[in-house]
Design a protein around this nucleic acid. Sequence first.
RNA 1: GGCGCAUUCGUCUAGGGGUCUAGGACGCUGGCCUCUCAAGCCAGUAACAGGGGUUCAAAUCCCCUAUGCGCUACCA
Length: 505
Amino acid sequence: MRRYESIKSRGDMKQEQRPRVRFAPSPTGYLHVGGARSALFNWLFARHYGGQFILRIEDTDRTRYQEDALDDLLSGLRWLGLDWDEGPEAGGPYGPYFQSERTDIYRRYAEQLIAEGHAYKCFCSPDRLAQMRKERQARKEPAGYDRRCRGLTAQQRRDREARGETAVVRFKMPLEGETRFHDQIRGDIVVQNETLDDFVLLKTDRFPTYHLANVVDDHLMAITHVLRADEWLPSVPKHVQLYAAFGWTPPLFAHLPIILDPSGKGKMSKRKKLAGNREAYVHLKDFRAAGYLPEALFNFLALIGWSYDDHTEIITRQQLIDHFDLDQVKPSAAAFSYEKLDWMNGQYIRTMPVDDLAARLLPVLRDAGLSPDMDTLRALVPLIRVRIKRLPDAVDLVDSFFVPEVHPTPHDLVGKKQTVDQTRQLLDLAYQTLASLPTFAETDVETALRAVVTGRQLKPNAFFGPIRVAVTGKKVSPPLFGTIHILGRERVLQRLQAAITLLQE
RNA sequence: GGCGCAUUCGUCUAGGGGUCUAGGACGCUGGCCUCUCAAGCCAGUAACAGGGGUUCAAAUCCCCUAUGCGCUACCA
């Protein structure tokens, strides 16, 4: 795999120039996990080199603007722990950080380009453009604007303006030659200018397009590195030409591999279903709601498209900051593996401090309609932590601790090779044994019940199975002795008795 | 169609010309452990897209082909 000169090797940036990078989402929808990954890489890069991570809101599309998108974005970044040094709610010396508040700036620069002969007004209607596109397609010509308005005389232009025709401002792309640039991840890229078209800079609503706004802002905000998803790569030549027209030095570019759907075919989409009819999460908030831990998702996302070495999977945030750099970013797109995320989430759940896990479980259990008390929950955590991959998995494991009674079925109660009578006798035995115990400490419970098993030469599960069902109402539960201890004498005996009664009927 | 990017186990990846009979992880399969389910441990499965070069030597460098993905808006 290629390895371009790492930024570090070009001199100690920590001394010379702190990078300024930005995440520049558009509030047209909820924060996508791919967007979150872009933000994450930018953040890691900034933190690694001690630079600034800037959040800029590219709200120049008024038709697709979504009211609650900004909140979702901000809370999503915060949930992941990606704090921004400049941007909404943080302020900063290069504001405003909402492009909708910077429209005069873009207009001014567009005027400048027109004045200097780098841009022109175009009066072509959307209808005509659509028509033109269709014809070009039919003739198998390259797509793109046919430049009809590029040759308008000053007089023609004045006439049409006088008639009140609306116009966009288009960039006057060089017709010949080539545009070359260096991508930090992909190396040198060259494209022929004849394949580039006269893209729109300013729309008829006087708002800038992405191309204009992003170039102007990156320059004005002193952005040093543009780290963004792969899908932007084809527009870099346009931006490079724009920088040239302005006489500005472009930032360094690094295009990150995009995240593909688990099948590896296409971007991640909400519409696709996973194996087992599981829902395919694509928005950050969906992962959050599904019970993934931010630190696990953070770890997982960092490792898609980037790796530290040949064996590290679980890696802390600080280690990531210490080691992250562009030279280990892979150029190829990567499929998103929900299975591996589940595994990783489980790893974090298992190693998290008990109190932390209990605290995170509390709201999840409440959402499920349970009213757990913290003491019981804390006692339960060690029993259930290795059994859950996502927070809501805990609900089924602990609900029997927080309800007054359980309702086992005779079918579950009676083991495969047992009769109803036998089962009832075993439960009775369990009742007698436990009722006579002086304490209900876990070890005492275990010692006593195991003694029964050995004494009667039973198979452990033949005895413990029915007890489990009687006491929790389920065939699958946390470890029995701990369960009995936490449930307490009163409830355990009650439930055993209830099961015995049930089997008598 | 045009333009661009990419291509190592099913998936995420290690790999910077010889140490590669290609390493790790997820998944899957089997075993151990075991009060259920898990977890853990052990073992197994499985890849350099194809073809040409360059070189004493290529997964690593170059070219072609194929395939995939992305872009092709007055969206970002």
